[in-house]
């Protein structure tokens, strides 16, 4: 088996200290391979979002290591992690997190522009990504002129623009109806089928079922896994 795109090894995350100490993650290990979509399920507060922020380098683990594309996030430093988010990792949020002051195309082109790409080439790439999510013709609209589903598609276009190897989606369907949610998942799944690795955090079984593997997280621990390839044993449970 080749090297996974994302690997979390024994990752713990503690917020606060003393009496206010909260263990968001207690030694989680998981891997996501190219072409694979992994769903993470669990009730609210189970730590599934923490897992995603750490995987995306937005937060750092208290202990344990994270590698993306073979690169250790801890060693990459703040700017290295930022660079990784610009080039390798695409993030999709529940509430879209589009920048209202930028047009759809500019939002999509954002990571490329931040990476120093020329305005024209960034824009061309953005148009292609918008086309991929079925929003050609909406390039110059502002987010608040669009519906929730359209906005989430822009967010997905932003997450897939360029050659992203890893897509992290945090409840991307949370604010959408079932039909629209299915469309969004179809887009993410298509990207994984095209060779990216995907991690999807959700609490809805119907969307989790799009994944190749479904991992259950509870109280900061991976408690269970259901999937097609259990033989690979990609999940290690760690006793606290």
């Amino acid at each position: 088996m080749s090297e996974p795109v994302l690997r979390l090894t024994d990752v713990s995350r503690v917020h606060g200290t003393g009496a206010a100490e909260v263990h968001a993650l207690r030694g989680v290990s998981l891997a996501a391979y190219a072409g694979e979509l992994v769903a993470i399920m669990g009730p609210s507060g189970s730590g599934k979002s923490s897992l995603l922020t750490i995987a995306g380098g937005l937060d750092s683990p208290t202990s344990g290591s994270v590698t993306v594309d073979g690169q250790d996030l801890g060693a990459a430093g703040v700017s290295g992690r930022a660079r990784l988010r610009r080039t390798s990792v695409g993030y999709v949020f529940q509430d879209f997190n589009l920048i209202p002051a930028l047009t759809a195309a500019e939002n999509v082109a954002l990571p490329l522009e931040l990476d120093g790409a020329g305005r024209r080439s960034a824009r061309d790439a953005a148009r292609k990504a918008l086309e991929e999510v079925g929003l050609d013709g909406f390039a110059d609209r502002f987010p608040d002129e669009m519906s929730g589903g359209q906005r989430q598609r822009i967010a997905i276009a932003r997450a897939i623009v360029g050659e992203r190897r890893l897509i992290l989606a945090d409840e991307p369907t949370g604010a959408l109806d079932t039909e629209t949610g299915e469309d969004i998942l179809k887009l993410i799944r298509a990207r994984c089928d095209a060779g990216a690795a995907g991690v999807l955090v959700t609490h809805e079984p119907r969307y989790a079922s799009w994944a190749d593997r479904v991992i259950y997280v509870r109280d900061g621990l991976v408690v269970d896994e259901a999937g097609e390839t259990p033989g690979l044993s990609l999940v290690d449970e760690v006793e606290a």
């Binding site: 703040v78 930022a82 660079r83 993030y91 954002l110 931040l114």
Partner: peptide
């Protein structure tokens, strides 16, 4: 702040 957080999430450099 939310927009700046978004910028950071999509990989803006600290100097951005």
């Amino acid at each position: 702040r939310p927009d700046l957080a978004t910028l950071s999430a999509v990989g803006a450099r600290t100097r951005t």
